[in-house]
Each structure stands twice: as structure tokens, then as C-alpha cells.
């Protein structure tokens, strides 16, 4: 098996006296779709926040390895924007779009870390800057086409439907050219048709060479997409394995009281 692109070991996060994450280990390999599940309050979003630099973990190691260049970087304490530059991007559970900017502009913001023009370019609009702007718009439009939002390209983000906003979050994250995409409850609030479309979208993204780590409560989505599943409860990893293994794991059934897992 190839070397992991994300290697988390012994990750611990304390808030005051509360231990929100307790020695969590996780590995993700290239091309995988991995799900992180667990009851509410299990520490899943905290885990994401530690990975993406919004929190600085109290202990443990987070290591990212670029699949092409093989370059390794330790993410602990790194700023969120640096982590995104390294190639790991995320979406948010409670949608955090730039509500008063257009759909296109939202995705263009995602291109920010892959472009360079600053004051000089802005004022003089030299050929290099113009070319760069053109590329930003083109790439953003292509991504919007992929997620099926190209018809609403000039709408304001806040006027989109809920499901469309979730897809726009994915588009925005994709614009940063990540090799690993973290999705925080991408299907929350979606109807069955929208979820079905989302599953296809995630498969498409994965087939294009992005690896995916997702938090989700919709078990249908998790079971049909994931190569592997990690289960968390009370800040600890309580199980891991293929969907079949996790489904029959007694600890998981206990954590969920059986109901969701049978679905």
C-alpha cells in the first residue's frame, strides 16, 4: 500500500478542562473516500478544525504528504491559509459562503492562493495580471459547470437554494486545487434527489484524483461512497474499517443504539 497522504497520530484537543479529542489516529491514502461518523458531539468537527488550522491541537501529530511531489509537511500550529496552500481544503457544516458576493466570485476567491497579482498588478493591469484574471474566471466557471451551478453564475450566493449553497461550498474548496478535500456534512438539509446528485458529484471529484474525507450523518451516503469508515464517540476513535466491518461492529451499534446503522 502506498504511503498515506494524511497521517494523524495521537491527536488530542483540550478546551479548558474538557478533552474534546482523545488520541485520535487516522490515515488517508491517495484516491480514497473516507468517512468520519459518530453521534452528535463526538468531536468530528473539532477534528476538522484541528486539521485545517482553525484550532491548534494540544498534542499529537498531523502530517500531510503531497501525492505527486512526495513533500511532507507537519500541520500542527500552521495557519489555515497555509494549510490550504499545501493542498487540503474544506467546506463548513454551517454554510460559510460570502453571502453578498456572486456565485462566480465565491469560487474566484478560492483561486486566490493559486494566483499572485498584488498592488502593482491591480493598478497597472499588465498583461500578466490580465491573463491571470482570465484564467481565474475560466477555471472558476469550469468548476461551477462540474457542480452544476453554471446557470446561476451571476446570482448572489445568498439567493441560492440550500442544496445549491452546499454545492457552491464544494466548488469554492475545489478552486483551491486540493488533493485532499474535507467535507463537513455535505448532505445536511438535502432532499433525497439532491443527495443522490451529491453522491455522483463526490464520485466524480474522486475520479478526478482528489481524495476525500467527509463527516456525514446520512448513512446511505456514507455506506455507498466510503472505502473506509472511522467512527468516533466522546472524542475517541472507537472503530474503523470497511462499511461492512463497521456496520457489524458492536461498539458502533452501541454508540448509535443500533438504529441508524441498520438503515
Amino acid at each position: 500500500m502506498s504511503e498515506a497522504i494524511l497521517n494523524v497520530s495521537n491527536l488530542t484537543m483540550d478546551f479548558g478542562g474538557i478533552r474534546a479529542l482523545d488520541s485520535v489516529d487516522i490515515e488517508i491514502h491517495r484516491g480514497e473516500i473516507v468517512a468520519l461518523i459518530g453521534p452528535n458531539g463526538a468531536g468530528k468537527t473539532t477534528f476538522f478544525n484541528c486539521l485545517t488550522g482553525i484550532y491548534t491541537p494540544s498534542a499529537g501529530e498531523i502530517q500531510l504528504r503531497h501525492p505527486e511531489t512526495g513533500k511532507k509537511s507537519r500541520l500542527n500550529g500552521m495557519k489555515p491559509n497555509k494549510i490550504t496552500e499545501k493542498g487540503m481544503a474544506r467546506t463548513f457544516q454551517n454554510i460559510r459562503l460570502f453571502a453578498n458576493m456572486s456565485v462566480l466570485e465565491n469560487v474566484m476567491i478560492g483561486r486566490h492562493c493559486r494566483s499572485h497579482a498584488l498592488i502593482f498588478g491591480a493598478i497597472f493591469r499588465n498583461p500578466a495580471t490580465r491573463k491571470e484574471e482570465r484564467e481565474i474566471v475560466d477555471i472558476s466557471y469550469q468548476i461551477l459547470k462540474k457542480v452544476g451551478l453554471h446557470k446561476q453564475v451571476n446570482e448572489q450566493a445568498k439567493n441560492l437554494s440550500y442544496g445549491a449553497q452546499r454545492r457552491l461550498e464544494i466548488a469554492r474548496a475545489l478552486a483551491t486545487d486540493p488533493f485532499l478535500l474535507l467535507l463537513d456534512e455535505p448532505a445536511a438539509g438535502m432532499n433525497p434527489q439532491e443527495t443522490e446528485a451529491l453522491i455522483n458529484l463526490i464520485r466524480l471529484i474522486c475520479s478526478e484524483g482528489h481524495s476525500i474525507l467527509l463527516i456525514e450523518h446520512d448513512m446511505k451516503l456514507v455506506m455507498s461512497l466510503s472505502d473506509r469508515i472511522f467512527v468516533m464517540d466522546y472524542g475517541k476513535k472507537i472503530a474503523q474499517g470497511t462499511p461492512e466491518e463497521v456496520r457489524s461492529n458492536p461498539a458502533v451499534i452501541k454508540a448509535y443504539l443500533g438504529e441508524d446503522v441498520d438503515a
Binding site: 482553525i54 490550504t84 483551491t176
Partner: peptide
């Protein structure tokens, strides 16, 4: 509009 989302999108705040 949103500082945290901005940083997550790779903007150096």
C-alpha cells in the same frame, strides 16, 4: 464577509 472562511480558502488574513 467572513474571516474564517477566507482563511480556509487560502487567503492570508
Amino acid at each position: 464577509e467572513d474571516e474564517i472562511a477566507c482563511q480556509a480558502m487560502g487567503i492570508d488574513k
